[in-house]
Design a protein around this nucleic acid. Structure first.
Length: 748
DNA sequence: GATTAGGCTTCG
């Protein structure tokens, strides 16, 4: 009989022990007494590794302590377990468990002189008709709003976010899991384990987990969960009505009606309180420039180079765009050659990078995967007329980017398997032509709406042969555009000196912040008539001093969402976090007389996701106290333009700069797009920090210039262009610019 | 029981 699990409710086992058994105290365990119908119950205080005896039988020794009077060593007794029972016991035993031992043989302990324990030991084995019960402890679960720093707790939660286990920079796998529960409090847990199996098997947002023995710590002002010794987890599908079957690596766990009820309640709560995304994207539904989770089967894999690795996968559907094929040496490609060939029109190449390579290498051909936050990117090779779609799993683990292996028992895998089996391989050969027919039917009559409907269309040939400047309405096709990487189209423009510059990256800002943190805050510049200041020192070895100055209005602090604050000594992350809470953040440093702005390579102001920059050439920064004039206004709106003005900053504007190559059969010309917001109806300032808007912009471009389309099949579009002269010394050239044009709503 | 990471997309 294997080790059985008993649950004690109100001091009595829920499933009773056999009725003939009676509890025996330690002091009554003596040679010469009959113990046939007696059991002994104690707490596991020590156990030894499972060993084999000379006769080949397994042997396991553990020490139980009498719970009633547990202070001296003589209150503990050695339990010797033989045969299969030894193995069973070794597998489930944990320090602190309560064990019940029945049907034992009592014998004189030969080690009493060394260990000072009870004079006898108990011998048990299956053959002797013994039984061992592990008494399930009564677990208490803490709701997420009652977590306290430094405690070790048990809890339930619904997965709101997760990173599938990945190889950490240390020795373990790491998985980050954010939970919520009906208290509406979030808890982000960082889970480590050297054993992939002992991390929770979470497959999607909405899954429900039960964590045992998770340590709670405070980190950055928030509670954080972290694995502690004995951490164990159960994971459940979060779908209401689905069978309540725990996914776990634990050999033994408590799971009874009470727990089942908790899971079902959490499912119901999550169904109406948590947004769980709809059905997962299929290859047939991909759009360029999207991040999505792909559930698929691995058909082939190959090494590419040190930092990237190729996975060939399919999900039975056909991607509507031409997809890229990553060139690899045939001998490096692992997988069934025949299948790879048969599925060549249905598989897509996914290139995984950096930290994902190690995991990707270990994947087994044929296994079912969920690739999280895979990126579809539109690109065109130099020698290609039409662009194609690339699938990337970029480095890093942001947004849960990673690879998870799904078991065959997973409902999504079952569904996928059934679908894959139904795909007639022969059909896929015909599908190529089919999808292009479908495409042609769907969007061929794209137009771009223009403001001046009174103008007639002019042929491009006529425009090219005319003097500048003039304005035209044209009907043309977008042959190609630059930059193809749309994020590169965003620049900063100074309306005063007309200069254009690249948007600085975060690293530069970080560097400037680090540099400014060296300047010690000047105590005299704290707590003035128009702002309140708070200063503290970080706990780490750097002992960094951070000061936040909250600007007041009418001598009162405002609501966070209306508040402008200035920060000294903050890191990039801290600044970023503050922008989530407060309306405006201005990084500053102390001088002798006033606070001052940092180098203008850094944003002088952050509002929400937007970083505002000043022109280095045209700005003459004024002392920070100039801001007090805005603070004194009736209702300070904290407009970036106004803040820039009082601080003597020439505000740089975010613009889209693109080059459109237009054709209409009579000629071709390049027209520039210089636009703040009108063309795409997306503010250029927001595009870099808003992935949704980036996708929207990419989709607009895909409609205007569909990837993978031949010249004849490109849609017509109408827009306004104006010609203008540019003279550079002796050189004279005519340029064209798109103006007063907005992409029609129904196009986007 | 030290470390890992400590969610908030790459840009190949």
């Amino acid at each position: 009989m294997p080790v059985q699990l008993l649950k004690i409710v109100n001091g009595k086992p829920e499933t009773p022990l056999p009725s003939h058994l009676q509890k025996e105290d330690l002091k009554h365990l003596q040679e010469g007494f009959g113990h046939t119908n007696k059991y002994f119950q104690g707490i596991v205080i020590l156990y030894y590794p499972l060993t084999k005896l000379s006769d080949g039988r397994d042997f396991f020794k553990l020490v139980l302590q009498d719970m009633n009077n547990s202070c001296s060593r003589t209150d503990s007794i050695n339990i010797l377990i033989y045969g299969k029972m030894a193995e069973d016991c070794a597998r489930v035993v944990r320090h602190g468990d309560t064990f019940v031992v029945a049907g034992f043989k009592l014998a004189k302990s030969p080690t009493v002189g060394e260990d000072g324990r009870h004079g006898c030991h108990l011998e048990v084995s299956e053959e002797a008709g013994s039984a061992i019960y592990s008494v399930a402890p009564k677990y208490a679960y803490t709701s997420l709003n009652h977590l306290k720093d430094g405690t070790i707790v048990n809890l339930y939660g619904v997965v709101k976010f997760f990173k599938p286990p990945y190889v950490s920079k240390g020795t373990d796998y790491c998985s980050v899991v954010t939970l919520v529960d009906p208290s509406n409090v979030k808890l982000t847990c960082t889970l480590f384990s050297g054993n992939l199996d002992s991390l929770p098997k979470i497959y999607k947002v909405g899954d429900i987990v039960r964590f045992h023995r998770i340590k709670i710590r405070e980190y950055n002002g928030q509670m954080q969960g972290i694995t502690s010794v004995g951490f164990a987890s159960l994971t459940f599908d979060g779908t209401v009505g689905a069978p309540v079957v725990p996914r776990t690596s634990s050999k033994v766990y408590t799971f009874m009606d009470e727990e089942q009820k908790t899971v079902e309640e959490l499912r119901v709560w999550a169904a109406s309180n948590l947004s769980i995304s709809g059905p997962a994207a299929k290859l047939s539904g991909v759009q360029p420039m999207l991040f999505f989770d792909l559930t698929c089967q691995l058909v082939g894999k190959a090494k590419v180079d040190g930092s990237s690795f190729l996975l060939k996968v399919w999900d039975g559907t056909k991607c509507p765009y031409p997809t890229w094929k990553v060139p690899v040496e045939a001998r490096d490609l692992e997988g069934e050659k025949i299948l790879l060939h048969q599925l060549r029109n249905l598989t897509v190449d996914v290139l995984v990078y950096d930290n994902h390579v190690q995991l990707a290498k270990s994947l087994k051909i044929g296994s079912f995967l969920r690739i999280y936050s895979i990126h579809t990117k539109q690109a065109s090779a130099v020698d290609e007329d039409v662009s194609h779609i690339e699938f990337h799993l970029h480095g890093g683990t942001c947004y849960g980017r990673g690879i998870g292996v799904l078991p065959e028992s997973n409902p999504d895998v079952k569904e996928l398997k059934a679908f894959l089996e139904s795909v007639e391989l022969a059909d896929s050969q015909n599908m190529e032509s089919m999808s292009s027919v479908e495409l042609d039917g769907t969007f061929n009559n794209v137009t771009v709406l223009t403001d001046h409907q009174d103008l007639n269309n002019t042929e491009l040939k006529t425009i090219l042969n005319s003097m500048a400047p003039q304005q035209y309405r044209i009907r043309a096709k977008l042959r190609t555009y630059k930059p193809q990487k749309l994020y590169q189209s965003i620049k900063l423009h100074c309306s005063k000196c007309k200069s254009l510059q690249e948007v600085p990256d975060g690293d530069g800002f970080d560097f400037i912040l680090q540099g400014s943190a060296i300047t010690a805050p000047n105590a005299e510049l704290q707590n003035t008539s128009w702002y309140d200041s708070v200063m503290w020192t970080t706990q780490d070895e750097k002992q960094r001093k951070i000061v936040i100055h909250f600007v007041k209005h009418d001598e009162m602090l405002q609501q966070p969402e209306d508040t402008l604050l200035m920060i000294e000594g903050g890191t990039l992350k801290e600044v970023w976090k503050l922008t989530k809470i407060f309306k405006c953040v201005i990084p500053v440093r102390s001088t002798e007389d006033d606070l001052e702005l940092l180098d203008l390579s850094a944003p002088f102001l952050l509002q929400g996701n937007i970083k505002y920059y000043g022109c280095k050439q045209c700005s003459t920064p004024k002392p920070i106290k100039s801001l007090s004039s805005i603070a004194a206004e009736q209702r300070p709106s904290w407009e970036p333009t106004e803040i820039a003005q009082v601080l003597g900053i020439e505000l740089l504007q975010y613009v889209f700069i693109m080059k459109f190559t237009l054709i209409d059969g009579t000629g071709a010309l390049n027209a520039y797009l210089f636009d703040y917001e009108k063309f795409f109806q997306i503010p250029a300032s927001e595009i870099l920090s808003n992935n949704f808007l980036q996708q929207k912009m990419q989709m607009t471009m895909n409609t205007l210039c569909p990837p993978g389309r031949k010249l004849d099949d490109l849609p017509w579009l109408e827009c306004f262009i104006k010609s203008y002269n540019v003279r550079d010394g002796m050189k004279h050239q005519v340029y064209y610019q798109i103006f007063d044009t907005t992409v029609a709503e129904d196009v986007v």
